[in-house]
Structures are given as C-alpha cells and as structure tokens.
Simulated scan of single mutants.
Amino acid sequence: MSRPVTLFTGQWADMPLAELAPLAKEMGFDGLELACWGDHMDVEKAAKSKKYCKDKLELLASHGLQCHAISAHLAGQLVCDLNNDGRSDMFAPPELAGDAEGQRKWAVKTMKNTAKAAANMGVSVVNGFTGSSIWHMIYSFPPASEEMIENGFKQFAKLWNPIFDVFDKVGVKFALEVHPTEIAFDIVTARRALAAVKNRKAFGFNFDPSHLEWQGVDPVKFLKAFPDRIYHVHMKDCSVTLDGESSILGSHLNFGTPGRGWDFRSVGRGDVNFEDIIRTLNAQNYDGPLSVEWEDAMMDRVHGATESCAFTKQVDFPKSDRVFDEAFDN
C-alpha cells in the first residue's frame, strides 16, 4: 500500500481550516499536517481539551482527511534562537515583543504543550524547528572558537531535554526539520545534535530534501545516515539557479526574485531526485506520510499543490515482497 500524501498547512494558515479542508480534498490529498498557527491548531486548547481535538479530527474526517502529524516550527524556533531582533516578535505573543528571555520561556512551555496536544490528537509526531544560538557564527569571522560552537550544542541540550522529557511521557516524538538557522542543518551537525542529547529516541528528523539539496548535501545520504531517525517526510523541491553573479547564500534577495542563486520549486520541477528518495525510504521501511510542503513563489499555490500531490502519488510506490525472478521457482 502506498503512503498517505498529506499537505502541510503552514503556507495556508491565512485560510480557516474549515475552508482549507475541502480544498485539500479537492486537490487530491489524503490528509493534513496541521500547523500550530492560524486557526489550524491551538496547542494550548489541544493540550487541555480532548473535545477540541475531537472536533478537529471530525472536521477532517468529514472531508475524508486524516492527520498524522502536527507542526510547531514557529514556537520551536524561539527556544534556542537569540531572539534579539524584531523577527522573533512575529512568532511570540505581542506582549512579549522585545523580551528575548520571555519569548524563550513561552516557547519552551508551548513546545511542552505541543507534545500533549499531539497525544490528544492521537498523532505520534510533532515536526518543527529548534532554533540555534550559533547560526550567526556559520562563517567564522569574527573568529568563533570551538568552545563557542560546543556551547551552542550544550545550550540546545539544556533547553530541549526538559521538553523531550514531556514528549517521552506522552509517547510522542519530535522531528526536527533539518534546515539552515537550526542547530542541525546538514549531516555533520545532525550527528552532533543527536550526540548532544545522548541519542535519546524522542529526537529525530523531519526529512525535507529541499533544504539539503541547495546546500550541496545529498538527501539520500542523509536518509542512509539516519535510518532509524526519519520520523516524518516532507516532499519539497528546489532548484539551484546560480548565474555567475548571485550567491548560493541567496544574496539577500527574496524568494522568487530573478537572479537569486536558488529557489524552492513545486514538487517535481526542481533538482531533487525523488525516485532515489522513495527507493531509499522503501529500503528503510518508512511507512509514514509523504507531506507536501508547497513553496514556489512563481506559481499559483492551488495549481502547484494540486500538481505536487499528483506527482507525489505517481512517484511513490510500495516495496516489493520478492525478487522478480523468484517466480521461476514455481
């Protein structure tokens, strides 16, 4: 049986869930990966009220949709970030604007509640970000010492281990979307992040090949490096568009700007080799959802999400239970 194809609702949070659900079904999706913003998932309510969760699930079910994961990228980002400029204010309650530590405390509490919300929703995975106190040191000038970098991983463990304790208690796992600006953004830093929390099972990865591809990291090698830590999969594509003038770092150009060195693409229209990814997931017995995170700044989103859903269903296939020439034994 092929895996369910879901839609991550983060890029659709401007639409009420009651409007998005029938649209998602019309676009061909089997379910939704609910973002914990907009009106899609209120973790404070979901952590306390099973009725709230029941109502969400019934809304989805009324449109023939399932829910396999919820996602808390925004709150998660503020756990380890420096929270020292106005960008963090966008993710926290307005009364905490400019209060770096207040935002951090709110984020830690919210991530603990997200674990409880997931349990009440009957899902076993929360996807999200961790933030990073050392991302700004990615290029070592002014020089960053090894002690500074190590302290960043220690802070990650200090702040997230109490959160993971709650995840363990309620039987839910946290899947980091390995991504620039997070404590893990490639294979090397993902290994280091796992080591920082002593490889505890509550912590794994939401595999998103697009964030690896443009960095020059082989997505299939990532899967093979962490076969037992792939807790969820995003289907997202990107294309490197270097022209000799722009940088792979993006040149401070917004997505979709002509001349930008790389950009996200509707699934199947970029550089990611999804055929090899599906074969590797099959070899590793991953049977969770394939969740489309649709981002293409130059395409209508309904058109793009619809074609991405169709592409994902076409490229996915179940694992064989035999080698083809075993039929000759009969």
Rank of each mutant, 00 (worst) to 15 (best):
Q66S: 13
R87Y: 07
E95I: 09
L65D: 06
L74H: 05
N84Y: 00
P93I: 02
G86L: 09
L65G: 12
F91N: 15
G64W: 00
S71W: 04
E95A: 09
L82A: 14
L65V: 04
A72W: 07
S71I: 01
S88I: 04
A69F: 01
C67A: 10
S71R: 01
P94E: 14
H63S: 11
L82G: 01
D85R: 10
H73C: 04
H73M: 09
Q77D: 04
P94R: 12
H63A: 08
H68F: 02
F91Q: 12
M90D: 05
S71F: 10
C80A: 13
D85A: 09
L65M: 08
D85E: 15
H73T: 06
A72F: 10
Q77M: 09
N83D: 08
L74Y: 03
L78C: 06
R87D: 03
A92G: 05
L74T: 11
S88P: 03
S88R: 03
R87L: 08
C67Y: 13
D81V: 01
D85M: 04
D85C: 15
H68G: 12
N84H: 03
A92K: 08
P94C: 01
N84A: 07
A69W: 00
D89T: 02
D89L: 11
A72S: 15
A69Q: 11
N83V: 02
L78V: 06
A92S: 13
A75W: 06
S71M: 08
D89W: 09
G76V: 07
L65Y: 12
L96G: 07
A97I: 15
C80W: 11
L78D: 08
Q77N: 09
A75T: 05
A72N: 14
C80Y: 13
N83R: 01
A92F: 13
S71K: 02
I70D: 00
N84I: 03
L74I: 10
S62A: 15
E95P: 13
L65P: 12
C80N: 15
A97M: 10
H63D: 10
S71A: 07
F91R: 14
P93V: 00
N83K: 00
L82V: 04
S88G: 14
G86C: 12
A69K: 00
A75R: 00
L74N: 04
L74M: 10
Q66V: 08
P94T: 07
A72C: 14
H63P: 05
V79I: 02
Q77P: 00
C80H: 10
L82P: 02
S71N: 12
I70L: 05
N84T: 06
H73P: 11
D81E: 13
A75G: 08
N84W: 01
A75D: 15
G86Y: 00
L65C: 09
H68N: 15
V79T: 03
C80T: 03
D81F: 02
N84S: 03
L82S: 12
M90C: 06
L78G: 02
A97S: 15
V79A: 04
A92M: 14
C80L: 14
G64N: 05
G86K: 03
H63C: 09
G76K: 02
L78F: 01
L96A: 04
H68A: 14
M90I: 11
L74V: 14
D89F: 08
I70V: 15
P93K: 01
G76S: 03
G98C: 04
E95V: 14
P93R: 02
I70E: 01
A72V: 09
